[in-house]
Amino acid sequence: MTKALPSVSRPATPGFATFDEPVHSLLIDGDGEPDYGAIQTSEDFLDLKRRVKRFILPATLLFLAWYVTFVLLSAYAADFMSTPLFGTVNVGLTMGFLQIVTTIIITMAYARYSKRKLDPQVDKVRALAETDEELA
């Protein structure tokens, strides 16, 4: 969305190159845009992807399975769901409330995981290509 032209990957040619320009392995193309193809295959990015997958894949499957179980039990095991647990509060209502509780637990777990495992890795990947103009 940043520009209409497809970014062609060229070796970085800094505008104010001098002979003592440090050999900086920034993954950017000739226009100073990040070289996405190179970043995509970089070890840091692959690691970020692994970390993301490690959390969201099991968590998503878990909560969907738990929700579908609840829905199916409500539809096809009404007798079981209406077994009283605490006074008049039955299994179904308890399970429904637990859906809300697990949602909160997964939400907070994801927020914590992101902060500890994802955000630092995102910063690492961004450092691969971040130029000073980007910071402006």
Partner: peptide, 21 residues
């Protein structure tokens, strides 16, 4: 479009190139 896909994936996960901090 492989180049665009790379851009979208990298940008989606990291925000690189979006101009966002």
């Amino acid at each position: 479009d492989a180049a665009k896909q790379a851009e979208m994936e990298v940008r989606g996960l990291t925000g690189l190139g979006s101009g966002l901090r």
